[in-house]
Nucleic acid binder design. Structure first.
Lengths: 125, 125
DNA sequence: AATAACTGTTTACAGTTGTAAATGAATCGT
DNA sequence: ACGATTCATTTACAACTGTAAACAGTTATT
């Protein structure tokens, strides 16, 4: 279990796109991420480069271009970012955090049911 | 409703301490934040200075020292940081985020009850 | 009064981030 | 075969971050 690299906000956009479409070329990512974030092609490429350097992405060469894939698990990355956020912004109190998001966000009735189920589980332990 | 300044991770530690003990002197903050984060006194002072400059803190002079208070609301700051985190890390899906934290974190039975109540409310609307 | 102990202010400095242009190498269309 | 296009790599650059030491002014101590 090595160190997880730190992923910046902008880089999260890239990582999420890669996790979704893996393996994927820079061109494809640019087509999606550029418009969605107002980034130039060069900007997207910079992020890709940095993420490879950080060890968050890896690639396989295919002709003159790369097929990018994630080199770190989304699970673990989400977990780490979440822990850090929880601790900074909510002082580590999961209760306040969850309360905040339930109050402020939208939830489908399926999600609400799912949450009830999880709370049940949590309680019974 | 002006712009909310961006608060960095380290700065959140400071802001949280100020929100809790407002108004508070640098000395008091150093006593608490120093050990808790392994920061030297100078480091804490730097953060205070930056936060004042960013408009996140303000102060009232008291002899040769300052009594610091928050100049921005915790509510709004938490909301902004939360929105940004939700969007970066969970692609804006409140459901996944809440699920994640409920699964990964600790909740007291009071908090669980509170959440059930909130879910109820949410549903009935 | 002189000095020690605090305060806040300035300066430092390397690493990260957001944003991209410039450059060089490979490939594709004609 | 050659110019146009497409890739990845390098270089740029200012703002923000984490971490603090240096400096200057004020207050408290001896």
């Amino acid at each position: 279990m090595g160190e997880q690299p730190d992923i910046s906000n902008a880089e999260w956009q890239v990582m999420n796109a890669v996790w979704e479409g893996q393996p994927v070329t820079a061109g494809e990512l640019i087509k999606v991420l550029g418009p969605a974030n107002g980034w130039s092609a060069a900007t997207v490429r910079t992020f890709l480069h940095r993420l490879v350097k950080k060890g968050a992405l890896e690639y396989e060469q295919d002709g003159n271009r790369y097929l990018y894939s994630a080199a770190i698990s989304k699970q673990r990355s989400v977990k780490q970012a979440s822990r850090s956020f929880l601790s900074s912004v909510f002082g580590g109190e999961t209760g306040s955090l969850v309360t905040h998001f339930v109050k402020a966000g939208k939830l489908t009735s399926e999600e609400i049911d799912e949450l009830r189920r999880l709370l049940q589980e949590k309680e019974s332990k």
